[in-house]
Design a protein around this nucleic acid. Structure first.
Lengths: 235, 235, 235, 235
DNA sequence: CATGAATGAGGCTTCATTCAT
DNA sequence: TATGAATGAAGCCTCATTCAT
């Protein structure tokens, strides 16, 4: 039941090295070397390098997924909050930031997430979609309630714009932070970054919808798009 | 001067394969195989795999950089436009989208850009910063004029939020487009995506600035943060 | 005394897998996997992989050896039959075919026997010769009585010709049967194959002996080849 | 065109080691060690271990196949000989024995052939059948003319009985020869063995056909089987 | 200018076995 | 009696690179 010391040590080493150098660029030898563990132990405990990569993600995302589920339960219990975009984003941010993360680093993990998307790890993306599709769908459904004015496809793309912002900045945080520190003499924390991101994300999601000249556009969509009194932001 | 056929064929093959499988995951054998070129040709013409990777980027970014310079010249000539955020973004988008790109695919290149950021290609990032620092600085300066209300550091982060949106969505475009097509029966083009992105980016950059509770923040600073028309940080 | 369930399960699994994939190509992992038994159980119960291989043979050959001994007892008791080649072969065939073989398959075992001869399993051949030398010698002695016209060395080689026929066809039975079924629409059983083999073996053992042109052979000897009733070597 | 020295050295080493220890039991390291060649050379020149195994066979069988084709041409040109079983077998034996075999050993190759049949080398058997199916079919057709009295299926099985005799005795020749030498003080050559085998094979093919009580037996087959004037040998 | 051959290093995986429990 | 964990050795294969031609 309890993961053996060896398993934990391998996961710890892999997490850091993967984040730092990428998956392909990190050899099992290096991982087991850092973990001070026999090379064959990886295959014994995980079966393959691919499985190890997935295990690194699961160890992080499983608790997160559970935590976010709980928070969404609470959010749904509160009738008024259910449709509030800001509240929804707050919930998400809180869940991400408050993860116990014994020893893990959010930054490290975000780099991994960035890698997962950009590197050719089809197996990983499939597995993540498979394993965390539920929580993602649930969040998406709430987001829909909170952004009724958006067409489904529009919301889809905006959500991924935001996802890109998060993953890109967090996964490249080390580099970016160095630049920022050098240019603006300010060392930012992840929490501060989240605070900066929130209003941006809010405003982005609430941006007015421009008519997109699509091939497949239906009349209804077109209607929804134009009549669209937005609040808050301004041109 | 004129790149030999061999060189071009190698670059073409490398561009596609790198984008599809990542740098480390693409062997020279595969590249030369696709290019129908001798294995040793890569080292002969480029010297090393790293140099080939850089060459792929240079071939794309050099013309783009020149093109954007020209467009910014025109923009600066027009006094009124110089401070218009929308105009600036339009210029950028146009330059990106109108790149002659003989045979190249914008999507392909964006995937490469995503890889360059997430993968452990220190040498590449350094070289890109070195070679295209000028055009980036120039754009940043204009952006600054167009967003005077933003503190420098705030602008810095928001710019990277936007960069993340672009790179993430474009580099993962194939996947995302498939999902969108499946769920919303709508096959999007890059141009349409740009159209969707523009209002979002605009609104994101113009989002109100929230107080950031920094560790090193002094009380005065905290006050300044809430009032909207920016003061605070310094030029 | 009674082999534990674990032991039996291992032997069963090993028998099938060895026959199907060869000794070296079958890992203990696979065997214990199929047997649903702990990996270490093989080394615990048998000591080593080699010992397991031998045990598989012993389990089959020990009862067979005992059975054949009994049948030869009966044959020897009958004075007339002792010198009848057909009777001797019948006895052998019967013993082979009537083996109780609880759960074992004659075909499976013949494949193992083929492997034992062709694969580099010195230890195994030595052990088999050691353990079953007696019954083999006894059979050979009877065969000698039944084929007095053959020189010892001639008999030796012919016996192995026959052995080759048996082992080769039975060990490759699956494949050959498939071909035969495809080409001649006839699915043969092991018993039918034995029936086909018997006259062939009989006739083969009784073939006229040709003069063997040894290195030092003179021209005259060569002439002798055509004349039928054998002369030449002898015991 | 001319196989490089490296290629030949690898093939030579592989041939001997495979024959001596089997395919799985012979590592590429050992082969390249014996051939005094870089380990990676095998993969460079052959692509994989499997391909190397096949190449070993091709090097031997390609010339043999060509030679046998020629001899069969000659045999068919001679009208009278075309239907003579003894002549046909002589042709085959001659072709096998007279193979130039620069440096190769027939015995070595026969061991390989034995391995090919008994070991789990599906890929090899398929490739052999594919590549040498023609010459085999041609021989079979001639054999059919020479053994008109045999039903097709009967001939099929008897042919494989003979094949088993050949492969088994030749592939185990070293061992058997040692025994024979010890027991009968006679060191046999391959040619002598062939001479011993010939009359046995002839008589085996000409053995009287016994009625086989098959499930699927048709009336015609039954007829063919019984009416069967045999010559020569007898029970 | 180009290439076929070759190479040393290192990749992941699997193996049979051992040992503490 | 049985087992989960661990291990050193070795397996095959692929890599980027070099070099003589």
């Amino acid at each position: 039941m309890v993961p053996s010391d060896t398993v934990t040590r391998i996961l710890d080493a892999a997490e850091v090295l993967f984040a730092e150098h990428g998956f392909s660029e990190t050899s099992l030898r290096r991982i087991t070397g850092r973990a001070e563990v026999n090379l064959a132990a990886v295959n014994y405990h995980f079966g393959s390098k691919q499985a190890l990569i997935q295990a690194v993600f699961f160890r992080y995302l499983d608790p997160f997924s559970a935590d976010l589920h709980q928070r969404l339960d609470a959010l749904e219990a509160d009738e008024t909050g259910a449709c509030d975009l800001e509240g929804l984003l707050d919930t998400l941010f809180t869940s991400v930031l408050e993860m116990p993360s014994e020893g893990h680093d959010l930054r490290t993990f975000m780099k991994l997430l960035g890698l997962a998307y950009s590197q050719a790890q089809r197996h990983l993306r499939d597995e993540l979609r498979n394993r965390y599709g539920d929580i993602f769908s649930r969040f998406l459904k709430l987001l829909r309630r909170a952004t009724r004015e958006l067409a489904d496809d529009e919301r889809f793309w905006r959500l991924h714009f935001m996802l890109g912002s998060v993953i890109f900045t967090l996964s490249g945080l080390n580099t970016l932070r160095d630049i920022a520190e050098h240019d603006y003499h300010q060392r930012i924390t992840i929490r501060e970054l989240a605070q900066r991101l929130k209003p941006v994300a809010l405003n982005a999601l609430r941006a007015p919808v421009t008519e997109v000249a699509s091939n497949a556009m239906t009349a209804q969509h077109a209607d929804q798009v134009t009549c669209y009194p937005r609040t808050g932001t301004h041109s």
